[in-house]
Design a protein around this nucleic acid. Sequence first.
RNA 1: GGCCCCUUCGACUAGCGGUUAGGUCACCACCCUUUCAAGGUGGCGGCACGGGUUCGAAUCCCGUAGGGGUCACCA
Length: 530
Amino acid sequence: MEVVTRIAPSPTGDPHVGTAYIGLFNYVFAKRHGGRFVFRLEDTDRQRYQPEAEQRLLEMFEWLGIEPDEGPELGGANGPYRQSERLEIYRRHADLLLETGKAYRAFETAEELEAMRLEQKRLGRPLGYDGRGRSVPREEQERRAAAGEPHVIRLVTPDEGEVTFVDRLRGEVSIPASEVRDQVLFKSDGYPTYHLANVVDDHLMGVTHVIRAEEWIPSTPLHVLLYRAFGWDAPEFIHMPLLRNPDRSKVSKRKLDTSVDSYRQQGILPEALLNFLATMGWSMPDGREFFSVAEMTERFDIDRVSLGGPIFDLKKLRFFNAKYLRDLLPLEEVADRVEPLFRAAGYEWDDDDYLLDVVDVLRPRAETLMDLVDQAGYFFRDTLRYDEAARKQLAAGQSHLQDVERELSMLEFFDYDGVDDMLRDYVQAQAVGMGKVLMPLRAALTGTTQAPSVTDLIVILGKEESLRRIGAALTFIDAGLPDDDPQRALEEEKARKAAEAEARTSHKKSVGAERAAKARASGASEEGPR
RNA sequence: GGCCCCUUCGACUAGCGGUUAGGUCACCACCCUUUCAAGGUGGCGGCACGGGUUCGAAUCCCGUAGGGGUCACCA
């Protein structure tokens, strides 16, 4: 029999990491067994329904590359895939239960139910619907319903005995039947509840394995009873551990960022998020921790799922992301992904080799794509702001800057080795520490003291731009190193921009194509994620 | 509170009767070094507790404790 799994999110709020997590495991399980993965929209809650949520959900899976085989947009043999479009089906099935006496119409108002709850609480009795509506005669039920009295449809559940089901990961789970309430199957607004809709749909859509979160275990007996009432075989149940907040409660947006869109905006890569999620409760048989969804699928074994609820650790997610950024993805790939973000930040460049060079030297320092955007600023700005540490370096390095400016302008072989030799020769001739020369230079080139190797910076920026920046820094020093007072800094920038405008011809020219080629040839990053 | 699930370093996990309990993140130290990173090396740190079963338990059983979930006309 073909394996069929599903992800059945409800369109409320932001696309949730838990949905991605459960979706991943359903997808991988189905693919591992050559089966199908179905996307079904559980939009039976009219209060919480958000129209844009469906599209965002679909986009999330698209971004992740977890593509359903059937769903609301791509269709399939078992549609429709929106529960709101299947109301007639649920109606029919509810009627079936009504006719066979396995369900009944209940007429309690919200106030009555609330009073019942309070009474139960006061007496210390078990909470939940007590089945009082069962005693209303059938004829009366039908008559009141026909008269248009609002009501719900509830399942008749056994009062004694136990309900048992098998969870693939836990074995037999039994629960006293008295714990299972006469749950609402149909709400008074004409929509089915999750319980009814999910059982009916899973059966009709041929779902063979229900992989869902652990929080569903308590209502599984009810589902089992429903399958029984319909005379259907239940699918196999596999309850995944719940993702946890740092305090071990189940993930919630109050305590953790649960929005996949948010991570996406922060520059988290889908590969990294997926890989990270995969390690939540699952591990490769060979202990590998970096792997693609395809590789996971190849080796997937649901029985290797561990049951302790894993904490969603942002630090580790960022580590995974950094790993993909600097090691697992080819340079070109990272550049492709960051390019639109650079453009959005207003960065411009003439030659794609320049972009490649920038990403190449920056990515060991970045954990997310946004880090790259933040750090790349000085590669694309005409006018630098010097932070405090940089100003200090400039103050101490004026003479070295003047010397290097001269040396650099005379340099004939402007490639990595040429620049590097020049710098080293100069430092040696001066008989000072490298830092004494390079830190002021770094400050002049970037406006900050935390940046890539000075040689790399000079080679990437190019002779002309490097000289221009050193000159600007010297001017800045002459101006007495004005501090970061916003107003003054603004005027300062304005004046400098005007002055530079005419002196400048073209800069930001890439001289780094050669370097990039070299890096690509020697780098081991051509194979992509593994 | 009732019911149910879970329990190996701070975190993610390997282990499925015999291991000096392994790896990764984080943290710390050292190395590299031109700052910051990255990288390399090393370190810190764990089988919740108590009973059994067994020649032998992290591994099997029971109990206790702790954590979590759930008790809606939400999913």
